[in-house]
Nucleic acid binder design. Structure first.
Lengths: 153, 153
DNA sequence: CGTCGATAGATGCAAATGCATGTATACCGG
DNA sequence: CCGGTATACATGCATTTGCATCTATCGACG
């Protein structure tokens, strides 16, 4: 039996997270260095991306906030910037007087698609040589399982 | 054959990265919210952690920079803050007049151990219920393979 | 040795971020 | 309906971050 299988559950969990985190740092470094993110920050693109994937087209600010690693106030101002640059539009939520709904403008769709294409290419260039298709599917399954479990509690 | 296995390699890679990234965001959100990170920011802890794992005790600033998701100038100032608070000490590199070597002070070791204990507990509380030991080992293997591949190019 | 391009790190400055708090609306118990 | 608490978002302010640039040293080459 290897040393790995005999170590404590707590230690294994910590090493797993550490490894996931370092992989994320390594990939993110490369992605941020690419030309796709000269015109827009990664967090900003992430917001455009999330809005582009939203079925109804409109998304509440607080739902967006669960998705992004930013404080509520930072997201509020990030969206303010995107609105000022003409990439997103706001609307008061019809069913909740406190809420704000967001959607992409035409210009926002354009930018998302353009950056998205480059971004996807950059990702593939890093991930495809690293892992087989089967490994990628397994990694996808495991990270989704982890995310779902963490989100649920 | 499922839809997953018929999709393009590029798309699979992008979805894999997306899932990894979202899992990281979800876990990180929880970790940052914990009491362990009231006294010190996560990036700052990460530096203390990395120094604590360094065999020789001393580490070059530029080596540290590969490990952390921060620009060179931000890391420079982060270390300056840690030094000001008495957690790390600097020394000019003996073999390179441009370089700086860092190590933990006694107080830095204390803090790292204390935060580290809480941090590991928090991690385990999120990861252990989410994935079996075998799944964690597989996730560890895949993320390490990805990290190594990305770092190599 | 002296020059030149490259690398390590520091610093001025503008922008982004988070914390604490403010304002407005929603929800709930009486 | 009224009062109290919770939620959604905005804003003042101090801290952190990144970009551009600066200084100093390194390494290669004539």
């Amino acid at each position: 039996m290897s040393a790995k299988t005999t170590e404590s559950p707590v230690r294994l969990a910590a090493e797993t997270w550490e490894s996931l985190f370092r992989a994320q740092v390594a990939v993110m470094r490369r992605l941020q260095a690419g030309p796709a993110f000269k015109s827009i920050a990664l967090n900003e693109y992430d917001v455009l991306f999330t809005l582009s994937r939203c079925p109804s087209g409109w998304l509440r600010l607080n739902e967006l906030n669960d998705h992004v690693l930013l404080s509520q106030s930072s997201l509020s101002r990030l969206v303010e910037r995107l609105e000022k640059r003409g990439y997103v539009a706001r609307m008061p939520a019809p069913d909740d007087g406190r809420g704000v709904l967001l959607k992409l403008t035409e210009s926002g769709w354009e930018l998302q698609k353009q950056i998205g294409r480059e971004h996807v290419r950059d990702i593939a260039a890093l991930v495809v040589p690293a892992l087989t298709a089967a490994e990628q599917q397994e990694l996808l399954r495991l990270t989704e399982k982890l995310r779902a479990s963490v989100a649920a509690r």
